[in-house]
């Protein structure tokens, strides 16, 4: 959708719509410092791209907390309840069957299945939840339009200030990014 709209607008105005401006750094430390500076300068709509997780970087770009723990906790609770209720229902309701004089609801014997269901459901939900919160799978993203970006999965570190930020201004933001002493500043086509 976005791509088509961008193409139409390009046709109409002869100009390329900008997703944002991207600065390339060669160390994690310089990227971290740059992200903090950008936040102090009032930019909010930005993201940093790195080939490895960097401690403190998410906080520096203003990302506070993830929902994932809560989602996984809920999933675990549901999985455990479901596993236990499955055993209980099979042995008490659906197919009551007295074995060695034990009560129908012989709950200690249900614990292994309860535990395994808890782990199974929470692990599946953890990964699917993480991918969904991250918006993956995502076949197209503008940052990949930048040629240099293929080193974001190798040994380079990128900061992208997005055009939707209210303080974004092509010239002023470019100047700001240049002042952070990156290797290069690039335009990201939408």
């Amino acid at each position: 959708m976005r791509l088509r709209r961008a193409m139409l607008e390009t046709k109409a105005t002869g100009q390329v719509e900008i997703y944002g401006l991207m600065a390339e750094f060669d160390t994690p430390e310089s990227l971290l410092a740059a992200a903090e500076r950008a936040r102090q300068a009032g930019y909010r709509e930005m993201d940093a791209y790195t080939p490895l997780p960097i401690e403190g970087l998410a906080e520096a770009i203003g990302f506070r907390r993830t929902l994932i723990e809560k989602i996984v906790f809920t999933a675990g609770l549901l999985g455990a309840t479901g596993g236990f209720m499955l055993c209980w229902w099979m042995t008490v309701v659906a197919y009551p069957h007295i074995v060695a004089g034990r009560p129908l609801n012989s709950w200690p014997a249900y614990i292994p299945i309860t535990f395994e269901s808890m782990v199974l459901v929470s692990c599946i939900v953890a990964v699917i939840g993480m991918l969904m919160l991250n918006g993956l799978p995502q076949p197209y993203h503008p940052v990949f339009n930048v040629k240099e970006f293929e080193r974001a999965s190798r040994d380079r570190f990128f900061l992208c200030i997005e055009a939707r930020d209210p303080r974004f201004h092509t010239e002023a933001t470019r100047e700001f990014l240049e002042s952070l002493k990156p290797l290069e500043v690039m335009e990201v086509e939408s």
């Binding site: 960097i54 991250n134 799978p137 974001a152």
Partner: peptide, 11 residues
């Protein structure tokens, strides 16, 4: 479509 975004890494 993994792109190494800092938010993604955090999650």
């Amino acid at each position: 479509g993994w792109r190494g975004s800092a938010r993604h890494w955090a999650r």
